[in-house]
Design a protein around this nucleic acid. Structure first.
Length: 299
DNA sequence: GATGCGTGGTT
DNA sequence: TAACCAAGCAT
């Protein structure tokens, strides 16, 4: 059996078996979760999982859905409540986008989370990954779901490269080519590729000895060539505007009455002009508001 | 296509 | 310990 892009489909049955035997027991994979929260629960979980690790999402997701179990419930909340509940999950604009998505679902979809990929893509904060993840994992439909884990597995097993190229539409075509016709199997393959990338085919130290696709992996067959590293370097966080924004928002979340004068949000910040710039950008993003010289979460 | 956007754990 | 990594999205 040759290990090439053409050979990869031959490993799909083994991949399905591997997933059925080894998938992690995550909350959003449980039948009770779907019975209780439906597609809305899946949508909320996918928002939280955008760039935030699984283990940090789990407790926050439970608390969030306990408070707001439906789109209508979330839409009725204020932005301040939403940003506060988001807590330290990071990228708090996601909280506003999720809130906006809930409002749009109430206004345009009679409170029912849409099943159609284009309808999902039209909602704020939902892109190629999240739209298809909801359509597949909540509704069981037949679409390619491609996240960073899947792209890494495809780069290695299909293309013989250690790291994926920047995201592109070709990723969807690559994944579509691997999906079985059977709808149920295709959903499992989507989940299994993500699971493989998250647990075995990891960025740093892949555990190829346990991999169900090892016999078909083009990267392994080629002797693990180094390839070209086209990963984007992450900007330094220490001293950044992002750190400054985070500190201001943390202060406002923690304030007893959620309102503080600008100077006291982050007192003695080494660069006052950076603090002021961060405040302006937070206001522009709708994450905070100024009210008679006081800053607070947006009402 | 490149960049900005949080937070915390791991190496 | 600085750098890397983590179920992306909008602009």
């Amino acid at each position: 059996m040759r290990a090439t892009a053409e050979a990869l489909p031959e490993g799909i049955d083994d991949l399905i078996t591997w997933y059925q035997d080894n998938a992690r027991d995550l909350p959003w994979r449980r039948a009770e979760f779907h019975e209780r929260y439906g597609a809305w629960g899946v949508l909320v979980s996918e928002f939280m999982l955008q760039q935030t690790p699984v283990n940090r999402v789990i407790p926050h997701l439970a608390a969030w859905l306990d408070r707001w179990a439906t789109p209508a419930a979330l839409a009725a909340a204020s932005p301040a409540e939403v940003v506060h509940q988001w807590a330290s999950l990071g990228y708090p604009r996601r909280a506003l986008w999720l809130h906006g998505a809930a409002s749009r679902i109430v206004a345009e979809h009679e409170g029912q989370t849409p099943r159609d990929v284009d309808a999902l893509l039209a909602l704020p904060g939902i892109g190629d990954y999240t739209a298809r993840a909801v359509a597949v994992f909540a509704f069981g439909d037949h679409h390619p779901v491609v996240d960073t884990n899947t792209r890494r597995v495809l780069a290695r097993a299909m293309h013989g490269q250690p790291q994926p190229a920047p995201p592109s539409r070709r990723d969807l075509d690559d994944m579509r080519a691997l999906l079985p016709e059977d709808v149920g199997d295709s959903a499992i393959v989507n989940a299994a590729m993500m699971e493989l990338g998250a647990t075995l085919c990891t960025a740093r130290a892949p555990r190829c000895a346990s991999c169900p696709l090892a016999a078909q992996c083009a990267w392994r067959a080629a002797g693990y060539p180094a390839g070209e590293d086209r990963r984007r370097k992450q900007a330094a966080y220490e001293g950044s505007d992002r750190q400054t924004r985070g500190a201001i928002l943390r202060a406002l979340r923690g304030a007893v009455d959620h309102a503080l004068p600008a100077e006291l949000t982050i007192a003695d910040w080494p660069r006052p002009e950076q603090r002021d710039r961060a405040i302006d950008s937070l206001i522009a993003d709708g994450l905070i508001e100024a009210d008679e010289g006081m800053l607070r979460l947006p009402h």
